[in-house]
Simulated scan of single mutants.
Amino acid sequence: MKTVTSETQLLYTTVQMYSSTMMNQTHNSDCNSRADFQFYLFPVVYTLVMILGLPGNLGALWFFLFKRKQRTASDIYLLNLAVADTAFLCTLPFRIHYHWQHNVWKLGNFACVLSGIGFHANIYASIFFMTCICVDRYVATVYPLTYLRLRNTRCTMLVSSTFWLVYAVALLVFFLTGPPDSEGDSCFENFSQEEWERRLGPYSVLCLVFGSLLPSVVILVCYPLVARRITHIRSSTAGKARRIIYIILAITLVCFLPYHTVHLLHLLRRMKYIQNCAWADAIYKARRITMALVSFNSCLDPVVYYFSTNNCKWSMPRLRWLRPNRTRGIYYISTDL
C-alpha cells in the first residue's frame, strides 16, 4: 500500500513538474516560436550594413563638422541623423556576435546596455530627424515667405537638443526603476511577463505612438504634399528636391513602416491581446525580419546626405535653401535640403 502511494505521489510530482516546465517553455518562447534563420540573417545583414553604412556616415560627419562652414537648419538635422547612424553602426559587432552565438550574450552587461541603446536610439532618432526635415521642407515649400523670416539654426539646435534630452531622461528613468529583466542569456529581448506589465508595456505604447506612428504619419502626409507642390516647378533644383523626397519616402516605407507595424503586433501579443500560437509564431518571425530590415536605414541615409549637399557633391554650397527668382517673382527650392 505504501509502495502504491509512493508511486502515485512520484507520478503526481513528475506530472506537476512537467506541466510547470511546459508552461514556462510556452511563456518564455512564446508558444514555442522559433526562427533559426535569424542566426544567419542578422550576422549577414549587419555585416553588410556596416560595410555600406559606416564610410558614408563617417564621411557625412566629417563634411558637416569640418567642411560645412555655414550650416543650414537641415544640415543640423542631417548631422544628428549621421550621429545616430554612426553610434548604431559602431555597436553592430556586438549584435553580430550575439546572434552568431544563437542569441546567447557573453559580452557583459555594459556592452548589452550599450548595444540596446544604440539600436533603439537609431530607430527613434532617425524617424524623428527625418520628420523634422519633412516639416522644414513643407514650411519652406508651402509658406516660403514665412520660412525666410523664421529660418535659423538656433531653433533647429534647440529642437535637436530637446530630443536628445528627452531620450536621455527616458533612459535614465528606465534604468533607475531596475535593470532590464531579460530571461536566460538574452540581451534586450525575451523580457518576462512581469517586466512587461511593470514598465515595458507603458514605455512601448508611448514609444510606438510618439516615436513611431505620429512621425510616420507626418512624413507620409507632408512629403507627398511637398512633392506635389514642386511638381509644377521646372528646374533642375526642383527635380533634385523631388529625388530627395522620394528617397526619404522609400526609407520610411521600406525600413520603418514594416518595423513599426510588426512592433505594434508584438506589443499586442505581449500584452495578451493576441494569444493564438500560430499568430504568435508568425509575429515572432516577422519581427526578426523587420528588425534586420530597419537597420538598412543606416546605409540608405548617406544617399540623402549626398543628394542634399549642393549638386550631389560634398563641397561648399553655392546656393541657399530658397533663392528669390526676381525675374519671375517666385521662390524655388535649392538642392541644400
Rank of each mutant, 00 (worst) to 15 (best):
E197G: 02
Y18I: 08
T3N: 14
R328H: 10
N297A: 12
P180E: 11
R199C: 00
R243M: 10
V139G: 01
I244D: 12
N28S: 04
S315A: 13
N109H: 08
N325F: 10
Y167P: 00
G56V: 14
S236Y: 12
R288P: 02
L107V: 04
R318K: 09
Q25I: 14
C112F: 06
L79C: 04
L200H: 05
R287K: 12
R234A: 14
Y138F: 15
A278D: 12
K69S: 11
V135M: 03
Q38F: 04
G56A: 10
M157F: 01
Y306C: 10
L11D: 15
T131L: 05
R326F: 14
G116I: 09
A286D: 00
C255L: 09
F128P: 06
F163E: 03
W314V: 00
C187L: 07
R95T: 09
L253Y: 01
N103I: 09
T141I: 02
S315E: 15
A250Q: 07
T5Y: 10
I127W: 08
F42G: 04
L158G: 00
L220N: 12
F64Y: 15
G239W: 06
S236E: 15
G116E: 14
T237M: 12
K2S: 12
F88S: 06
T252V: 03
H120R: 13
A140F: 03
T153D: 00
C90R: 05
